[in-house]
């Protein structure tokens, strides 16, 4: 029966960790909606997540749109359906690739930075110092990051959607010889509001996940520089996995028949 013990330990450990994360998220959200609000800190986080992620998100979207147009052209040419390229590119970008790739790119950039910063504050007792200075660390550190993640990711995804579709357009017109007017017509005529809205809802959830995992892993880091390094890695890995898993769940919610 001894072989069951490790399985039990893993299951209990997983449940305990999930419980801790849910409680952490609940506290973070509660402080995000209750005053006082740290507007200056929230603004700074919005700049860091939103504005400074623009170049990398833009480039990712551009190349993704370009390669998507190429691949779909090659695939659809096999059964003479080249006219579907524009529609498939815009739906692929707005529903899936825009939000997911933006989420993953920002997770690598932002969740890591948050975990490293908060983790260093934890191991150098700066978070304890906040408490002794009558400042709630959830309100001061977690809430501004959650608000910034939740609001900035949808904006980034709007930009990614536009640039991604533009990338597809450029390749289709310049290299594949499509007629610009027809391409644009096919892009917008078959696009439905739900395609964009579902992508933006995904983006908000991904933004929340990114900030949550960055803060959570940083908050619980221990053991000096090595612990902060581990927290940083775990923040990126856990945020990425949660993004992919929640992406499936949200898609199921929106589009399952």
């Amino acid at each position: 029966m001894n072989f069951l013990a490790p399985i039990g330990r893993i299951v209990l450990g997983f449940l305990a960790a999930t419980g801790r994360l849910v409680i952490f998220a609940f506290h973070g959200l509660r402080h995000a909606v209750l005053p006082p609000f740290y507007l200056r800190l929230t603004g700074r986080q919005m700049m860091s997540i939103g504005y400074f992620s623009l170049p990398v998100v833009g480039l990712t979207a551009l190349f993704t749109g370009m390669v998507l147009a190429l691949q779909i052209y090659v695939g659809s040419a096999r059964f003479n359906a080249e006219s579907a390229v524009a529609t498939i590119v815009v739906i692929g970008i707005t529903r899936e690739l825009g939000p997911v790739l933006t989420g993953l790119i920002v997770a690598g950039r932002v969740a890591a930075a948050m975990a490293a910063e908060i983790g260093t504050m934890r191991v150098t007792e700066q978070i304890d110092a906040l408490v002794t200075l009558s400042t709630n660390p959830f309100k001061y550190l977690v809430a501004p990051r959650l608000i910034a993640g939740l609001t900035m990711l949808p904006l980034l995804v709007v930009v990614a959607d536009i640039i991604g579709v533009l990338g597809g357009y450029l390749v289709s017109i310049e290299s594949l010889g499509f007629n610009p007017a027809t391409y644009l017509h096919n892009t917008f005529n078959f696009l439905e509001p739900i395609d964009v809205i579902s992508g933006l809802v995904k983006a908000a959830v991904f933004g929340f996940i990114i900030s949550l995992m960055g803060c959570y892993q940083g908050f619980h880091s221990k053991g000096g520089a090595k612990g902060v390094g581990r927290a940083t890695t775990e923040a990126v890995v856990s945020a990425s996995i949660l993004i992919l898993a929640s992406n499936y769940a949200i898609t199921e919610l929106f589009f399952a028949k």
Binding site: Q126, A129, T132
Partner: peptide, 13 residues
């Protein structure tokens, strides 16, 4: 309370 921490714990930002 006021507290002086062992490693000073100043906020470096």
């Amino acid at each position: 309370f006021g507290m002086l921490f062992q490693g000073s714990a100043l906020f470096d930002s």
